[in-house]
Design a protein around this nucleic acid. Structure first.
Lengths: 245, 245
DNA sequence: CGCGTGGTTGAGTCATCTCAATTACTGTGG
DNA sequence: CCACAGTAATTGAGATGACTCAACCACGCG
């Protein structure tokens, strides 16, 4: 495990070299998982949290009728499932989307670090604050926006986040999430997601091929999705506004 | 400001008497606000957070077309807007629902406390974790559940939370939130909220009068709303299952 | 008395869902 | 090498739930 993986965390809080070393030392092992595997299940009491070294994960809830609601995505560099170890029982599940590599930090080490270095505690806390902010944005997205806007918004969000994680270039990023997954995240039917995608493509906003999204016009896509990146608390973007233009 | 107001915080983390004193000492003043007043606005950079001594607040976002989406409620005993001071800019606004009394904790004091007493930092962090968990539950609620279920679920959530805060008795609690507000929280039209309320009343699940909700049958209401309180991380309830029974 | 707010009712519209069938692609075993 | 199964995406058509619009009621207050 190398330190560069802490890059995303550092975008929220400046960490001293020692801080980073302490965090790196807390990693006891790494695990590799295939796609679509549960990492933690609702109701469990996890004793570790994970730093995503590579891959994409999703958080989801299972509702009464068996329907799934995806309530968030996590990408490379995210710290994921801080909740569990800190507060105890899981209120939702976490699963891989793609094959992923995770660094494991045990609960005890986590708590000990915070006790010893409150500054790291604040850094981790901020991570939770951003998670909460994203969840609230999703509430607004799913609650009030049209399907069109929702999907545009989601793609903008993930584009920005992946970009900040160094996983997007020229408006292209890997997007291994199926239309069925998008439907489960955005509260829509798969059929409708398909139709919205078609419209977005027809409007020249993006191109999809295989598991890659290529956004042709960020400006218009953000306009469509009413997207403003403030809630992600990322350092200001260096992106050029249009891939075309 | 008296210490009992920290009761809700203590439900998440045991605090020593000194911890509580430190927190109480951090309170520099209290403010009183009328109903429906903005406390913090989207885009601002607040330098304080608030402990709600009395009243109910809402977090909301304003969308492109001027529509409002309420993304959460806060009740007496909640620590509210920890985000702002910790992370900087606000991604949403906070307003009172009812007239409220708030204890003010300045940013500097907050950060200093955490540095000095990491355990308090963890307690506050947990508060954020619960906020995030609630937001995720709302995503699922708004994304996948029927209007009927959504409203039942919301009432169950608020009932439980108010109960835990000592603000509900015999299934009765003050619910000063208008149907228009519920509509803005649940992604519905006011007309539809009205019809759902009527149905819930007709089904004998609850009675409303003035700003008070009286739940007649918690069990069935929770069933309707697919409500499970796990995500609130409250100490287990001592409530009797039926008010009727 | 008139006005503003919150809630209710009715009627028509339309967005999105459901159901069902079809295509494209990929990996697997005969 | 081909047949087959399984996954992901697409298309069409009909059903319907929730929305919008608009009127109306009840209440409290200046």
């Amino acid at each position: 495990v190398t330190l560069p993986h802490l890059m995303r965390l550092e975008q929220l809080t400046a960490l001293s070299p020692e801080d980073k070393q302490v965090l790196a030392d807390a990693i006891v092992s790494t695990v590799t998982m295939g796609p679509n595997k549960d990492l933690v299940r609702q109701g469990e009491e996890p004793v570790e949290c994970y730093l995503i070294l590579d891959g994409m994960l999703q958080r989801y809830k299972v509702l009464g009728d068996g329907a799934r609601q995806i309530v968030g995505f996590h990408i490379t560099g995210d710290l994921c499932d801080l909740n569990g170890p800190v507060i105890g029982r899981m209120d939702h599940s976490i699963a891989t989307v793609t094959a992923s590599k995770l660094a494991v930090i045990p609960r005890a080490a986590l708590l000990e670090i915070i006790e010893r270095r409150p500054r790291i505690g604040i850094a981790l806390w901020k991570e939770t604050i951003v998670d909460a902010a994203i969840a609230r944005e999703w509430v607004a997205n799913v609650g009030r926006r049209t399907p069109h806007q929702r999907i545009a918004h989601l793609l903008c969000e993930m584009g920005r986040r992946l970009e900040a994680a160094g996983r997007a270039e020229d408006g292209k990023f890997e997007w291994p999430v199926t239309q069925a997954d998008v439907a489960e995240a955005m509260g829509l039917s798969t059929v409708h997601v398909s139709r919205v995608y078609q419209q977005l493509r027809k409007d020249g906003l993006l191109v999809t091929e295989d598991g890659v999204v290529h956004v042709l016009d960020w400006h218009r896509l953000e306009e469509v999705g009413e997207f403003t990146p403030d809630y992600l608390f990322l350092p200001s973007s260096t992106r050029q506004e249009h891939a075309s233009a």
